[in-house]
């Protein structure tokens, strides 16, 4: 297997008395979409900022595209793209102007028009950014992150504040980038977002990795009991079972036609996630700046 895009061994970072990241080990493979989940104060932002070369670590080894981000040369920034939580200070310019000046910083940038089209901004290309909607601004942030043709893209809580349709559109854009072979590291608070986009999910809390798996298998979801639920004599009934198929067959035999209001569910990613982090979430930890 090829060298991972991101390799973290024993990463630690302390602010005063607070251990924000506490011996974190993690690999992100080339070409995958990796979602980093965790409660506020878990160390997500600190970890990502170390990877982006914005923050120095206290201990551990970090390699991003084969280079230590701490003191990495400018040439290293040619290969990574960062979608910041918000790009302020652009109100007076147009998307085309900002993309053009940003593209000039890179040796092999994408065409500005191509980026505008991919991010759905071609109609707003020559309008002032102050007039863009929240979703359009976020797409501009992504446009700025990808105009340099990065091998690795950092996406920090990309769809916070989006309406459902805007999120679906945005997810399409991210999947499109991933299909080009761009490695993507995503942090998010939305479990459905991780489930839709990520090949693998890492859950961190208190600066440590709690679980690492595909969204479908995280925390043993696949092997957990399913809940079969239906309506009978006007009453909602449900049962938990390890063999939902057998239960369905039995139900099908009892009812003449369709089983009313039938559902079969397994624990959602959100249920699994909340169960994983429950021991680490206290009133205090939510107050600590990440």
């Amino acid at each position: 297997m090829s060298e991972p895009a991101i390799r973290i061994r024993g990463l630690s970072k302390t602010y005063g008395q607070h251990r924000a990241v506490d011996g974190l080990d993690l690999d992100v493979r080339c070409g995958e979409v990796f979602a980093l989940l965790g409660p506020n104060g878990a160390g997500k932002t600190t970890t990502v900022e170390v990877l982006e070369g914005f923050r120095d670590r206290d201990a551990g080894e970090v390699s991003v595209l084969g280079t230590d981000p701490q003191g990495a040369p400018l040439a290293w920034r040619e290969r990574i793209g960062i979608v910041l939580q918000s790009s302020g200070g652009l109100d007076l310019l147009t998307p085309r102007e900002v993309l053009r000046t940003t593209a000039r910083c890179y040796r092999q940038p994408r065409e500005v028009d191509e980026v505008l089209t991919r991010t759905g901004l071609q109609e707003k290309a020559d309008e002032r950014i102050s007039g863009l909607s929240g979703g359009q601004r976020r797409r501009l942030d992504v446009a700025l992150g990808i105009v340099g043709r990065p091998e690795l893209l950092f996406l920090d809580e990309p769809t916070t504040g989006f309406d459902p349709q805007a999120r679906r559109d945005f997810w399409g854009l991210i999947r499109d980038l991933a299909s080009d072979g761009t490695t993507i590291l995503l942090t998010t608070h939305y479990l459905d977002e991780a489930e839709h986009l990520a090949d693998r999910v890492g859950v961190i809390a208190a600066g440590r990795l709690l679980a690492l798996d595909t969204p479908a298998a995280l925390g043993g979801r696949q092997s957990q009991e399913a809940t079969v639920s239906w309506e009978e004599d006007g009453v909602r009934r449900s049962l938990r079972t390890a063999t939902p198929t057998a239960e369905l067959l039995a139900l099908a035999a009892r009812f003449p036609g369709e089983v009313p209001e039938l559902t079969v569910t397994r624990p959602s990613l959100e249920d699994t996630y909340l169960a994983l982090i429950a021991p680490h979430v206290s009133g205090e930890s939510a107050q600590v700046p990440a």
């Binding site: 914005f54 400018l74 920034r77 910041l84 918000s86 790009s87 302020g88 200070g89 910083c105």
Partner: peptide, 18 residues
């Protein structure tokens, strides 16, 4: 001061611009 606060400087720093 404004560009430091609104993230312009951070954005520029995230590119290979010298």
């Amino acid at each position: 001061a404004t560009e430091r606060d609104d993230g312009t400087l951070k954005r520029l720093r995230s590119t290979p611009m010298p």
